[in-house]
């Protein structure tokens, strides 16, 4: 396959970016999308692919390349992680594209995710949301109670697991017209509110995490559901509903 790529190039956080056109050839259907970018970068390095403005290889975040670390993050033809469903960019394969196609590649666009270089953004706002309360306050101890001392109904354990499979990639924010982080935040809130271990800090957790989310500059949720559609782990919108209930409940019942 031969493809035309339109890639967002930006030297650093302070510089102005632009879309730059590259031509890649000999792309095979079995390649992953990131391997296609590897080919682009090797071509830029060797001079086989023309890089008029001398930007050099395209910087992009990637690590595990099997859809679990959450590092890769790009818009492909305007969609976070591209046209596939339930995949990250690294799990997207070139068989989804056809010969001669033009592909647009851009970084996440959200105020809370400033660009570092090219397709690389700073998503540490997500870490700070977790730091605000996405945990159970239990110290390491060889004396916690036996793991089976507290049975947890299978449905709750399974629902908590489904919420906990979020990989923190930020596609939900990127997909949202408001750049809202509700799906991300609610996934953690839901996981811990479904488990007895999360009970003692239930109210404080949701209030603190929502507060941090707002402070980071994420937008509000208007229930369009784009986040869940683009989510590579298919995190359900029900989590947002649950977080809203938790938030309301906390505000009505919390002593603070």
């Amino acid at each position: 396959m031969n493809l035309t790529l339109k890639v967002w190039r930006q030297q650093n956080a302070d510089s102005k970016g632009e879309m730059v056109t590259y031509k890649v050839s000999d792309i095979t259907p079995d390649m992953s999308f990131l391997e296609m970018i590897d080919v682009l970068n090797e071509g830029i390095l060797s001079g086989d692919i023309e890089d008029k403005q001398n930007y050099g290889p395209v910087a992009f975040d990637h690590d595990c390349r099997e859809g679990i670390c959450g590092m890769c993050s790009m818009y492909i033809n305007g969609e976070p992680h591209g046209p596939g469903r339930a995949v990250t960019t690294c799990q997207l394969h070139m068989r989804e594209f056809s010969d001669g196609e033009t592909i647009y590649i851009e970084p996440w666009r959200a105020k809370a995710f400033p660009i570092i270089k090219d397709l690389v953004t700073d998503r540490s706002a997500f870490d700070r949301i977790i730091q605000a309360g996405g945990y159970v306050s239990v110290n390491t101890s060889g004396n916690t109670q036996d793991a089976n001392a507290l049975p947890i109904p299978k449905e709750n354990a399974d629902a908590a697991f489904d919420a906990a499979t979020c990989i923190g990639c930020g596609a939900c924010v990127a997909a949202c017209k408001n750049s809202s982080a509700m799906l991300f935040t609610s996934a953690k809130v839901a996981q811990l509110s479904l488990l007895p271990q999360g009970e003692p800090e239930r109210e404080k957790r949701v209030m603190d995490m929502v507060k941090q989310m707002d402070e980071e500059g994420f937008g509000n949720c208007t229930n369009t559901g784009a986040c869940s559609v683009e989510c590579p782990k298919e995190i359900s919108l029900e989590n947002i509903a649950r977080m809203n209930r938790e938030f309301l409940r906390a505000n009505l019942t919390s002593s603070k």
Binding site: V138, L150, D158, A160, A164
Partner: peptide, 10 residues
């Protein structure tokens, strides 16, 4: 035990 206490959904 520790992981369950942290809310790891095994």
């Amino acid at each position: 035990d520790q992981c369950v206490a942290q809310g790891v959904p095994f």
